[in-house]
Design a protein around this nucleic acid. Structure first.
Length: 437
RNA sequence: GGAGGGGUGGCAGAGUGGUCUAAUGCACUGGUCUUGAAAACCAGCGUACCAUCCGGUACCGGGGGUUCGAAUCCCUCCCCCUCCGCCA
């Protein structure tokens, strides 16, 4: 949610932002300004009424104490009329405020000046591509074949027990996920992020705070009895951690990381793009979040995306970084990078990370502020988050890229260490077959 | 799940319908004094909104109600504490 003050001060900037995002019509900005002007006029009038009432009430109190009941009664009769006026004025104000909020909520964040204009995926800019795509002397298999061959993931029984998109990870499959989580968390910690285990459900207020509500309600699983939502990403609880607080400037930047399962309904997505591990209703992810001073968020975004890239490099996965264009970027973002890994068996790019700077857009709804060290009024902080990283597609790419002619899969050495394995970790070797269920 | 007790400004803590829409203490900031510090004294010290200025309005866990007037009374929801029940 944009700050009203910002629209008032620079309506042209917001209109320009809407056009860059591909909106045809910027009248909503003028509507907000007109309504805001009307609202403020009414507010001022309402407050003078209240001031009159307060003064009269005090006068009545004085008269009552002096036992001057007649004079007090005269005032009280007058007050009834004032009361009606105030009631009517309040109804008007509530209506205007609700209309104003609805309009403001419909306006997306202003893209950073460095974000390219565009409408579709083809307009995203490939910032760079790193690593080498694997060359196979044989026909490489997609991961859904490899997971079946080596009994790493049980999609069928997952569908039986919970439904499509809820697989069982089994044996080396489960162990691989555990090693990845351990590795990602260890890296985040050594980069200065504080590890946090957040709740996996959040209340309505938190879902509003980070912008999952009202737009993306359909994406979340909901616990109706208790009015809770299963988190679609750790971003929600982590960014809400300091909701409504005023932090000392010296505490910034706050760096948080957390591993959680993520739950997404993803209604209406079917087809080959979602086969196997490509898209699940439940998946694991390590998330990094930062709360910064406004002047730092630009630099911090670059640091965060680089952090995620180093993970991919150490996993020896070929990847590319995309700078999302204005039209592909999320509603709440000012700037967003996506990281995609090359998955050799499917011969396609898979998105494994999205790193974004929200500037003050989330902080405004979160009422997340900091007090400048120099003193003075609290200011809105900036919030950023990124995946570092999302697991299942990493698993898919690791399996597909590292498959060998004999059908075995040799995982990168860094994972052996985090899985507690001495030497090479080769899936499909005799030792692994012995562990099958 | 049941019974009882509570939620007041950074912290502590008064205030049970009207002369403050929040006393007082601590902490914090500035000043006086001092070679410096401490102490003492003086002043300031929540958040948000409206108003060109003077100033005004709201917030005592959230929401609603009663009243001329609500931190105070009523309803409702949330949270915390104690005890009981259940339980990894």
């Amino acid at each position: 949610m944009l700050e009203l003050k910002r629209l008032r001060d620079a309506p042209a900037l917001v209109k320009d932002a809407l056009l860059r995002r591909g909106w045809q019509d910027t009248r909503v900005v003028d509507e907000v300004l007109a309504l805001d002007k009307q609202h403020r006029a009414h507010l001022t009038a309402r407050q003078s009424l209240q001031a009159r009432q307060n003064r009269a009430a005090q006068a009545i109190g004085r008269l009552m104490r002096q036992k001057d009941t007649n004079a007090a009664q005269a005032h009280i009769r007058e007050q009834s009329r004032l009361k009606q006026e105030i009631k009517a004025a309040d109804a008007d104000l509530d209506r205007m405020q609700a209309a104003l909020d609805a309009l403001l909520l419909s306006i997306p964040n202003v893209p950073d000046a460095s974000v390219p204009a565009g409408r579709a995926a083809k307009d995203n800019v490939v910032v760079h591509e790193r690593g080498h795509r694997p060359q196979f002397a044989f026909k490489p298999q997609p991961h859904w074949v490899l997971t079946q061959t080596h009994q790493l993931v049980d999609f069928a029984r997952g569908a039986k027990v919970a439904g499509a998109g809820f697989p069982f990870f089994v044996g080396d499959g489960a162990r691989l996920q555990r090693a990845l989580v351990q590795y990602f968390l260890a890296s985040a910690q050594s980069a200065g992020y504080l590890e946090v285990q957040p709740p996996l459900v959040v209340g309505e207020a938190s879902a509003h705070g980070t912008g999952q509500l009202p737009d993306k309600e359909g994406q979340m699983y909901r616990l109706l009895e208790d009015n809770l939502y299963l988190i679609p990403t750790a971003e929600v609880p982590l960014t809400n951690l300091y909701r409504g607080e005023i932090l000392a400037e010296t505490r910034l930047p706050i760096r948080l990381c957390g591993y959680t399962p993520c739950f997404r309904r993803e209604a209406g997505s079917y087809g080959k793009d979602v086969r196997g591990l490509n898209r699940l209703h439940q998946f694991d992810k390590v998330e990094i979040v930062q709360i910064t001073r406004p002047e730092d968020s630009g630099t911090v975004l670059e640091q965060m995306v680089q952090h995620a890239e180093v993970l991919l490099e150490q996993l020896e996965l070929p990847y590319r970084r995309l700078l999302m264009c204005t039209g592909e970027m999320g509603f709440n973002q000012t700037k967003q990078y996506d990281l995609e890994v090359w998955s050799g068996g499917q011969a396609r790019w898979l998105e494994v990370s999205s790193v974004s700077n929200f500037k003050a857009f989330q902080a405004h709804r979160l009422r997340l502020r900091y007090r400048p060290a120099s003193g003075g009024k609290p200011r809105l902080a900036h919030t950023l988050n990124g995946s570092a990283l999302a697991l299942p597609r990493i698993v898919a790419a690791l399996l597909e890229n590292n498959q060998r002619a004999d059908g075995t899969i040799q995982l990168p050495s860094i994972l052996s260490r985090h899985a507690g394995i001495d030497g090479d970790w080769v899936i499909g070797a005799q030792a692994a077959r012995d562990r099958r269920i």
